[in-house]
Design a protein around this nucleic acid. Sequence first.
DNA 1: ACATAATGTCAAATATATTATACATGAACT
DNA 2: AGTTCATGTATAATATATTTGACATTATGT
Lengths: 93, 93
Amino acid sequence: MSAAESFSIDAGSSGVLKLGMNTIHNRIRKLRFDADEMTQQELADRIGVTRQTVVAIEGAKYSPSLAIAFRIAEVFAVPLDQVFRYGQESFTG
Amino acid sequence: MSAAESFSIDAGSSGVLKLGMNTIHNRIRKLRFDADEMTQQELADRIGVTRQTVVAIEGAKYSPSLAIAFRIAEVFAVPLDQVFRYGQESFTG
DNA sequence: ACATAATGTCAAATATATTATACATGAACT
DNA sequence: AGTTCATGTATAATATATTTGACATTATGT
């Protein structure tokens, strides 16, 4: 586990985006650490956005474009629904 | 089949969005007609956007937000990957 | 012939996503 | 103590998505 993770108390950036009555959860952070602790900068480079964008999406500050969502899933080689999920439930699968 | 469909020759709006080397296909039009020929206006109302937005997304003029993508899938009661697909292949399944 | 409904399109305005730059913090290391 | 790395945050600028309002076309029905 690298530097920033151990002190991140998931305060502002919980990975849950509320919009209307529904929410979008994402597992980007987990996928990054599972993928040899890939850094936010590395992920940003691989999907062709800036680090700030990764921070915002991972922290669910806003809803990314579908194109970027697909590229993130592509990087981790998983289907989109294993990165983002819609509804009230948390990620369990 | 209602009015507009029979003369639409799929000229500008092919439902395929190219970005970078990859593409995003969508089946919104098919899903609409399968769903009792739901109109663009009806779909727009149900996902909370304007008709022009539905036209643009259906015609793949740009990449919608993930939130809207999820709401579209929700309306048709299918998983997201049955509405939008990423990559070179067309929809077959 | 006329009206209506569904769609495609266009241009300008607004909202939101994304970038660019900069600074702060804690962990790991020397 | 000092340095580096990964992260969180903030603000202004730019790009893109979405809205608003309007108009054209074709099909369907009267």
